Simulated assay, not measured.
Amino acid sequence: MDTLLTTLRAAGEGTRLRILVLLGEGELMVGELVQILEQSQPRVSRHLKLLSDAGLIDRLQEGTQVFYRLSDRKIAKQFVNFAFNFVDRDSEALASDARAANYIRSQRFERAQAYFKDNADSWNEIRSLYVSEAEVEAALLAMVGSRKGLDILDVGTGTGRMLELFSPLASSALGIDVSREMLAVARSQLAAKQLNNCHVQLGDMYDLPVKPDSKDLIIFHQVLHYAEQPQKAIAEAAKSLKQDGKLIIVDFAPHDREFLRDQHAHRRLGFAEQEMTGWAEKADIKATDVKYLDGGELTIVLWCFEK
């Protein structure tokens, strides 16, 4: 009863309800909410604190920036979904909020696309060395299967493409990356496609920002070759898997393209199957499937491990 009353009091105010509706369309920074709501930062921050204390929203600090999003807690999601059934989105206040939020997100998208364009040549050079991304993604989908309602973690999410690919199977999908620039790209892509079950945040593969035994699926897509300690990243991921959860790694088979190390910061020039399965065994997960994709200068390997 106390939890319900706290939740009702937090949501039962005009500005706070407007904030919940805005965050229902995607995460926003404090400054963006101030701009949309046309209220002072201390006042908006007070509303955000009350919503956060009630467990309706989550606060995410990334350096000097603070993002807010709707909470993934089951009771919070149920309450918000129920409340939204009675919200008149055509009302003057909410319609104005939506226009302002759409403008902010469009500006964010343009900045992200500019960064993406500036770096596209580098990424395209690497992609030209192996089979098409469509073939890789088809193999990934087949390896994961059709089960829905998954709690997914994408490590080194980059542009957020894996989140987009698996969003139809996800109850909740989180992407982490150490690059704020790439997170900006991912946020803009997810917002543009209205994938509200997908979120991104700053995070380290060696210290995942998730609870142990909490994820149905963890993905490392073309990221482990950047790792100083890939075995440590695998062990950390294994701890975060639920029983019968899957860890899928997409990377290169061993190769000799030294320019990838020199020009693209690759720490490892691919991984041997024996090496990868040895790390998995030490992390108490077992290999259940390995698939090789030939068709270019480099061979792509998909490893599937289960707890």
Rank of each mutant, 00 (worst) to 15 (best):
Y130M: 05
H255N: 09
F86D: 04
R59K: 02
L153P: 00
K49I: 14
R69A: 03
E38S: 08
L23W: 02
Q65R: 12
E27G: 10
V30H: 07
L217D: 00
E273I: 11
A112H: 02
L37M: 05
I176T: 01
G31C: 02
H221M: 15
D251V: 15
R268C: 12
E25H: 13
S167T: 15
Q189D: 09
A191I: 15
L22E: 01
A54L: 05
V155C: 04
S214Y: 02
G55E: 05
I285F: 06
S91E: 08
A93F: 04
I248K: 00
M276A: 10
I104V: 06
I300M: 09
Y130A: 12
N81K: 14
A186K: 01
P42F: 02
K307V: 09
V131H: 10
G156K: 03
F79P: 01
S45F: 02
L269G: 05
A112L: 06
R43V: 15
R16M: 07
D207Q: 15
V155I: 07
A173K: 02
N119F: 14
L183T: 00
T7V: 08
Y206Q: 08
A170K: 03
M143N: 14
I176M: 00
D213L: 07
S146V: 12
D118F: 11
G26R: 00
R257Q: 09
W303D: 06
N197R: 09
M162N: 13
S40Q: 08
W279E: 02
A227T: 06
T277W: 04
Q189R: 07
A139C: 13
A235T: 12
R9Q: 10
F67K: 00
N124K: 09
D284G: 08
Y103L: 14
K211G: 04
L28G: 01
D289A: 06
F82K: 13
I219M: 10
L247C: 06
R69W: 03
V66E: 00
N85G: 07
F109W: 12
G14D: 14
V80F: 06
I176Y: 00
C198T: 13
E110N: 10
G12T: 14
P42R: 04
T6Q: 11
V136N: 11
A233Q: 04
R9E: 13
L165T: 12
G295T: 01
S122V: 14
L5D: 12
T277P: 07
S128H: 15
Q78H: 15
S214H: 02
G63T: 03
R105S: 08
R69K: 03
E137H: 13
Q263F: 08
L153I: 10
G156A: 05
